Computed example of a mutant assay.
Amino acid sequence: QVIGDHSYWSFEDMSADPTESGLYRATIQLLKETSNFQIFRDRDWEQGMYPKAAEGGAEAAVGGPDGLGHGRNWQITGKVGDHYNIEFRRRSTGNLDEKSVTWEFHKSGEADFVELSKSHRYFLIGSSTGFETEQEMERDLESGHFSTRVVIGQSNKEEFQILLNSNWLAAVHPNICDATMNDDGHTLQGPDDAGDGMYWVIGQEAKDQDQVVPGTHFMVHLEMGTRSR
């Protein structure tokens, strides 16, 4: 399977070539100008293939299959909406295990983010549950926005981020650690695999101390634009 930015880091099957053993193909559509991807076997996180060099090109040696490839991705650079063909080859003979990944431009296109978003579900996950229990956000059918209620725990603050389809590799997160609603210049990132340690915080600022106490309820809103992701 191939997994990456093009699929919001969900597994997509590759097709085995009927005439060449060990050759697998997939066609993807870019949703970002720089699109990262990896290849996995049997949807198993411990059987990933990845470039041994971070941000590798087609010339990079292929690592795996193992679970050590987090953050080591192949990168395709193109226009949003472009389609690319990806090929993965593996030949194992005796002590040799030869693997290669290549890709080429297939055709131009338009990415329909509105259509893609129709099947999306978003889940808030936060510190009040030790980042273990996800809370599904409710979609407003008129606006397409998502929201959910957060209850402040005993720490007097709540750290959180938002996961697309419950996938930690498709996190919606701030571009800085411990961002607040009032941080000047902080931007929303994702869904992507770069959310590790990047959380919004309710109760971080001094002016919140009188309002943010255990049991206080806050509403968290995720507003979707016309190029909804």
Rank of each mutant, 00 (worst) to 15 (best):
T27K: 12
T27R: 10
T27L: 09
I28T: 09
I28M: 06
I28C: 05
I28Y: 03
Q29G: 03
Q29K: 12
L30I: 13
L30D: 03
L30S: 05
L31S: 11
L31C: 15
L31I: 15
L31Q: 07
K32N: 14
K32E: 12
E33Y: 02
T34A: 14
T34Y: 14
S35Q: 15
S35G: 12
S35H: 08
S35E: 10
N36T: 08
N36H: 15
F37Q: 00
F37G: 02
Q38N: 13
Q38V: 13
I39A: 01
F40I: 05
F40Q: 05
F40P: 03
R41I: 10
R41V: 08
R41D: 11
R41F: 13
D42F: 11
D42P: 07
D42S: 10
R43I: 11
R43M: 11
D44Q: 12
W45I: 13
E46D: 11
E46L: 11
Q47M: 11
G48A: 14
G48I: 12
M49K: 06
M49A: 04
Y50Q: 03
Y50D: 02
P51L: 08
P51T: 06
A53C: 01
A53W: 10
A54V: 15
A54P: 12
A54Y: 12
A54W: 14
E55Y: 11
E55N: 14
E55K: 13
G56A: 06
G57H: 05
G57M: 09
G57S: 04
A58E: 09
E59I: 10
A60S: 15
A61T: 05
A61L: 14
V62F: 01
V62N: 01
V62A: 03
G63P: 02
G63S: 04
G63T: 03
G63Q: 07
G63W: 01
G64N: 05
G64W: 09
P65I: 01
P65V: 02
D66T: 00
D66C: 07
L68G: 00
L68V: 01
G69F: 05
G69E: 04
G69S: 04
G69Y: 02
H70G: 00
H70F: 15
G71T: 11
G71L: 06
R72I: 06
R72L: 13
R72C: 00
N73W: 09
N73G: 00
W74V: 06
W74T: 00
W74D: 03
W74G: 02
Q75D: 04
Q75F: 00
Q75W: 05
I76H: 04
T77E: 14
T77P: 00
G78S: 03
G78W: 08
G78N: 04
G78Q: 04
K79G: 00
